[in-house]
Each structure stands twice: as structure tokens, then as C-alpha cells.
Write a protein that binds this DNA or RNA. Structure first.
Lengths: 295, 295
DNA sequence: ATGCCTTACGCCGCCCGTAACCATG
DNA sequence: CATGGTTACGGGCGGCGTAAGGCAT
């Protein structure tokens, strides 16, 4: 009746690694067991999930994978969440932050956090946005700081991996960074919709990912002419001011930049927002620390 | 390592029924097996989940329940989703709709649906908003119609039970229904924020639930002076126009009402929105029908 | 011929039911 | 004392490993 999560875990491993034997090694099974797992899953669901030799997902398999990954995540989150309730608050704090806007917020508030909860060790881990909520849910992180684009009062949209509490930490204007001589560089404000066809730099780990922008604007534009994979804002600023494309950043990220011009976004009404995430224990240490961050 | 979903299912049943033996009956187990399930779960998570005699949830149990229910839902959804891919499109269509705004939309479009897909039997099931997404995900419903409050371009927020496709069907202004002699009845438009402390009727199944309104406005107000449990709008309109409280409705719901005054909501900028939900198969019948509804 | 997945088969462990036990109203 | 949860124990079954069997490259 109920789909066996062990089989799902095996299925996910096989799909990711593209090999039964590699999945078996990773999971500590024999190759045979993995084969039986997949066979059992296919029999249970009465659908072929994988094509063998070479191993590739069928349509049904692709579909199942979309369910299986969040499912396993939630399963881990459930365990972590309940266990966390019982366990004594540990003398350590692991904070995950999306880079670098959220990290800079953390830097300015970390003193408050340390004051609120004198901990032996604090670890800050810079991670991509998508995984932070998951790591908070499964207990790998005690606290998460995530930034994103949202209308002024709207909360950010986090992947649903369990009951998490999200609190706004900061909210500030978005700016478009232009090279010094750019035709628009004299403007006081910009309408993003006018820039849908401009040359953009997609810097998902250093600035705002363009796909988020597309979602926020409901537009197909904002295509990247350059992709910047890294978390160093200065590198991004250098590229943008050298004219390789526009960059969308929170206002604070461009403070002190003299080689380019940062023009605020005036429409649509979007802001850069940082939220802190924690597993919503009412009076736990994470909640205290979250309060210290928002206060 | 992985929390056994069978144990979770038993746990949910016990929590809901407040009894081990009742849960055993429902699940087709012996009382002993249920006891062993709960014991195993508690041992696995190293936490006490239930107090016995009387059976009541502990804090950890409450927490686990929040995870367990969506988890089991997703598990069912995963099975249904994959199975649905393989199965031939059945000659039947089950549509769930939140009452009554979404239902009336369905009434006006059902002819298009029948034209797009000649089916032997069409069933319309009126359900509360919260369960529709779940029933679409697990295949009980082929299509869901859900209404809600949202800012003009924003999508509705549906519970995350799997990869569902949501498409806007209609969007129309919200109105506040006032009795004829009400001081505000002469107004051309109303600011909802001015009405946070007014006397409201909470009619979750006939109009907009006030808790949604509170979320949309980020306000603690809009408390109910009367709760109306039913799906008949005419009954609600009668109560509102008789002065028992204000009602928040989509404009179309009050068409033809002469005993009261309906004043449009002008701020904040919120609209009544109906969306159709289906399990996102690209070319399946549900997608065709969804297109017929939106077209 | 050699990976790589599948099938056959036996053993171990888990899970459920029976039944005796115990606690609480 | 009765109702209802717990504990003890045994049998059945499912799942994993070993090993042999296809089947491509």
C-alpha cells in the first residue's frame, strides 16, 4: 500500500549515479539488492522506471524522482525535528547563509547572536539558496539566512520541507549596476520591464539569480549574456562595470563602488529581502538567535 | 535510519482517534500491533510521543504529527502520480471545487470541458479548500478548482503535496457586503484596513475565510462575530444584509442582490482568484480540460 | 571476454497475531 | 471488574547476500 522509502532512496541513488552498482556501493548494498529494489518498486507501481544499459529514467521514473527527493528530505526532517526537541541544546551553532547578501547581514548581527547565546563554537557555512531550507529542516543547520526578491511586504517563498519559521531580517532596495558611461546611468530610477532585453550577467551565487527575477516579474526576458559562478561580489562588480552586462544587486552590495553607477529599481515594486529560517521551536535557542538577528 | 511510514500511519491514526484500539480497528491490525508500532516509533526517535490513558500527544508527538500527515499525503501522491502516467485516460472526470465561488466558475465553463473531452461521466465534488490540492495529487480528483485571495498578479498559495500545475481561471474584485442602511454603504470603494475592527461573518465555505484575509493583510483584526458553516451563499447574504456582520465576497457572488449594498475593496489591492489544479502531465486529459477552463 | 544487470535460492530477522499480564477508571 | 494498553513468544514472510545466469559492448 505505502511506497517503501528504502526503495525510493535506492531509486534516487541509481538515478543520480546512473548505475546500479555505484548505487549499491554508496548505500552499502550488493548490486543484487539494488536490482531487487528497483524491480520491487517497478512491480509495486506497475510502471517501468528505468531503462537499463545505459541506465536512464523513463517518463514515469522522472516523475517519481520529483516526488522521491522531497519525500526523503521530509522524512529526514521529521526525524531531526523530533529528535531536536528531546536533545539538550548543544553548545554549538551552525548557520547557513546564501552568499553574499545574507552573509553580510550575518556579519553585522553576529555579535548580537553571540551575546544572546554564549556558544563554544559558531560555524558559518555559505550554501546555495535552494539547500538551506532543507538543511535547516534536517538539523544540519541550526539557522539559515536566505535572501531573495519579493514585493515589499511579501514573504520569500521557501521550499516546503516541513514546519519552518521564517522571519524577515532586512529589506532594502534593489539596484541595477551599470558601467559608468551607460546610456541609462543618469537615471534616478529604472523600470525593470524596460530592461528585459538588456544584456544581463547571471550571478546566482553572488547576486540575484535571473530565474528568480523572471518569476518575480512573470517575464521570459532577462536572459544572461554571461554566467558568473562564484560568490565574490567584487568580481561580479568588476565584470558589470566593465560593461559585460547588467547586474541586479541589493543596494548595500554596491556601497563604495566608484567605477560603476548603481540605479535603484523603481518598478515593479520589488525589494531585496533577507529572512532567517529555523525549525519553529517556540523557546529553543534557534528561536532566540533568530530574534537576536531580527531585533 | 529512515522513519517507517507504516509506523507514521499508525501514529496518525492513533492521534486522530485518540485510541490504540480504535486505530487498530481502522487499520486492520490488532491492538497489540498498534502498541508495538508506537513503541517502535518512540524507540526509533528516542522520544515519548503519546501519553497513555488518556491518549494524548506530547510536544514531540505534536511535532511529529505536523510532519507525518503531509508525508503520508506525498507518499500517496507519488504512487498516484506515477500510476496515472501509465494508466489509460479513464472515461470519467472527477472535479473538486471549493464552494461556491469556484463552483459557479465551473458551471459557466463545464460545457467547454465536455466539448474538449467527451466523457461518460462527470462528477463534481464540493470540498473545503484545504483538501483539494491533496485530492488532486493523490488522484482522487482529476481536476481541482480552488478560490482564494491574492494580489492581482500573484498566484494562490497551495499546500505543497507534489508537483501540481496551477492555472488562473478567473480574477475579479472583492466586495464587502453591507446592510442597506450601513454608514459606509454610500462609498464607492473601501479600504479593508479601516474595517479590521468591524463585525465580520466568518463563512469559510461560502465566502472568503477570514484567516486568509488576515494573512493577506498581515493583520490580527477581522475577527468573526458570527460563524456561518455552510456553502449556501444566499444564506450568508441574508445574514449579512440583515446586519449580523460584514461579508467578504467575490463580486459575482452578490450579483442580483438588492437587499444589501456591495462595495468594492480598493485597498489593499486584493482580488478574488480561481485557479485550476491538475497533476502536471504535459498532454494528459486533465491538462486539456484545464486549458478548456482557462480558455 | 568482461562488465553489468537479473534470477534463483536459502537464511536471517522483523513483524504481526495470540495470549497472558497489568494499570486505571 | 472491565476496558484498554503492554509484554512475551512463536510462526510466517520478506529482504538481503551468495552465486549462477543472460546480455550487451
Amino acid at each position: 500500500m505505502i511506497v517503501d522509502p528504502h526503495l525510493l532512496r535506492t531509486f534516487v541513488a541509481v538515478a543520480r549515479l546512473g548505475s546500479f552498482s555505484a548505487a549499491a556501493r554508496e548505500l552499502g548494498y550488493t548490486q543484487s539488492a539494488v536490482s531487487q529494489h528497483i524491480a520491487a518498486l517497478e512491480a509495486d507501481l506497475r510502471a517501468s522506471l528505468l531503462r537499463r544499459r545505459p541506465v536512464a529514467l523513463t517518463d514515469a521514473g522522472t516523475r517519481l524522482l520529483e516526488h522521491a527527493e522531497p519525500l526523503l528530505l521530509r522524512l529526514a526532517a521529521a526525524r531531526a525535528d523530533v529528535t531536536r526537541l528531546a536533545a539538550a541544546p548543544p553548545a554549538r551553532l551552525v548557520v547557513g547563509a546564501s552568499a553574499p547578501a545574507a552573509t553580510s547581514v550575518l556579519a553585522t548581527r553576529l555579535a548580537d547572536v553571540r551575546a544572546a547565546w554564549p556558544l563554544a563554537a559558531v560555524t558559518v557555512r555559505v550554501l546555495e539558496r535552494a539547500v538551506i531550507a532543507a538543511r535547516v529542516a534536517d538539523g544540519t543547520l541550526d539557522l539559515g539566512l536566505v535572501d531573495g526578491i519579493a514585493a515589499p511586504t511579501d514573504p520569500l517563498h521557501h521550499p516546503d520541507v516541513g514546519p519552518l519559521t521564517a522571519l524577515a531580517v532586512t529589506q532594502e532596495p534593489l539596484v541595477v549596476l551599470l558601467p559608468a558611461g551607460h546610456p541609462l546611468s543618469g537615471r534616478r530610477g529604472l523600470h525593470l520591464t524596460d530592461l528585459a532585453d538588456a544584456r544581463w550577467i547571471d550571478a546566482p551565487d553572488a547576486a540575484m539569480p535571473l530565474d528568480r527575477l523572471r518569476i518575480a516579474c512573470g517575464s521570459d526576458g532577462y536572459r544572461a549574456s554571461l554566467r558568473y559562478e562564484g560568490t565574490d561580489v567584487r568580481g561580479l562588480i568588476a565584470l558589470a562595470t566593465a560593461g559585460h552586462g547588467l547586474a541586479l544587486l541589493p543596494e548595500s552590495a554596491v556601497e563604495g563602488t566608484t567605477t560603476g553607477v548603481a540605479v535603484p529599481v523603481t518598478a515593479p515594486r520589488l525589494t531585496h529581502r533577507v529572512e532567517v529560517l529555523h525549525g519553529g521551536l517556540p523557546a529553543g535557542p534557534a528561536a532566540l538567535l533568530a530574534a537576536a538577528l531580527t531585533g
